[in-house]
């Protein structure tokens, strides 16, 4: 068994270099496709992070009557927090609202000072788990006596939800198409590499080699092509990582730094798995047609 594996590995290594042109072509297309694939995946992950961030930004703002008591506020807070659609609840008092206004509009601060009383209402700023739940929360709030009005962002929310859905669907479809193209091209390149060795397979069959002895060297060779392609791809990605990361964070503006490291690790694992997997499956399938008879 060990002798068999050693034999297969040795033959795979020899096979790779003997047909170096074919092997390099297979490796090159592997690198090209894996780079394309990981580019797509990174873009997709960045997009998803952005969408998550945007979703988190959707807030329901409810303005309270000036007559609302501290008890009303406490009760509403706990009721809102109990709602499954709600992720966070923030209470902004009248004083806080005034301070916020003065900070954001310093030009009119003097004007505010001259007013006899604070005209700004207290409010709740409520973040949602899913922007499409906006209506539920808004309706609940409108029914509360302590609530004066609810900011109407229904239209904005529904537009944004639609955009998010379209973007996710298109992303998944594009990813799928790229993935299938990768598979197709690589399987065909490997098949060509196997066809180039048809005579060798014929000789092996004639001298009485068992299927395993014919198949496994090719499968290992495919795995080798996948491994090499994946390592070159990961090397390339590491080279361009810094510029791409800064590009991404300036483009999406929201990707947290520690997430980039995690994305990098996941993409590396994906590239390795996909490369080796496609190499193995591709050569297994290619050599199978020669063993059928």
């Amino acid at each position: 068994m060990i002798a068999f594996v050693a034999f297969s590995l040795k033959r795979a290594w020899q096979g790779f270099w003997r047909n170096s042109l074919m092997s390099l072509a297979a490796t090159a297309s592997m690198v090209l496709m894996l780079t394309l694939l990981s580019g797509m995946v990174i873009l997709f992950l960045g997009l998803n992070a952005t969408l998550d961030y945007v979703k988190g930004e959707v807030q329901v703002v409810a303005y309270l009557n000036d007559s609302a008591t501290a008890q009303d506020v406490a009760q509403l807070t706990s009721q809102l927090q109990a709602m499954p659609q709600v992720s966070t609840v923030k209470y902004v008092s009248k004083d806080q609202a005034l301070k916020n206004f003065q900070v954001s509009e310093p030009g009119v601060a003097d004007l505010v000072d001259s007013l006899p009383s604070n005209p700004l209402p207290a409010s709740f700023e409520i973040s949602l788990r899913d922007p499409s739940d906006y209506i539920d929360v808004a309706t609940f709030l409108r029914d509360q006596p302590a609530v004066d009005s609810v900011q109407d962002i229904a239209k904005t929310v529904s537009q944004m939800t639609a955009v998010i859905n379209v973007v996710s669907t298109v992303g998944i479809v594009v990813l799928l198409i790229v993935g299938l193209t990768v598979l197709f091209i690589i399987v065909n390149t490997i098949r060509l590499a196997v066809v180039a060795r048809a005579e060798e397979i014929e000789i092996m069959r004639l001298v009485g080699a068992s299927d395993a002895f014919i198949r496994w060297p090719f499968v290992f060779e495919g795995a080798f092509v996948g491994l090499l392609g994946a390592m070159i791809t990961i090397g390339l990605l590491m080279l361009v990582q810094a510029p791409v990361a800064s590009l991404l964070s300036s483009f999406f503006n929201v990707l947290p730094v520690q997430a980039t490291a995690m994305v990098g690790q996941n993409v590396a694992l994906m590239v390795l798995g996909t490369g080796v997997g496609i190499g193995v499956v591709g050569s297994y399938v290619s050599v199978r047609s020669y063993l059928k008879r």
């Binding site: 002798a3 034999f7 000789i203 092996m204 080699a209 068992s210 002895f213």
Partner: peptide, 11 residues
């Protein structure tokens, strides 16, 4: 030797 190698003959 190839004929023997591919049929698992001991080295």
């Amino acid at each position: 030797a190839f004929a023997l190698e591919v049929t698992g003959t001991p080295r």
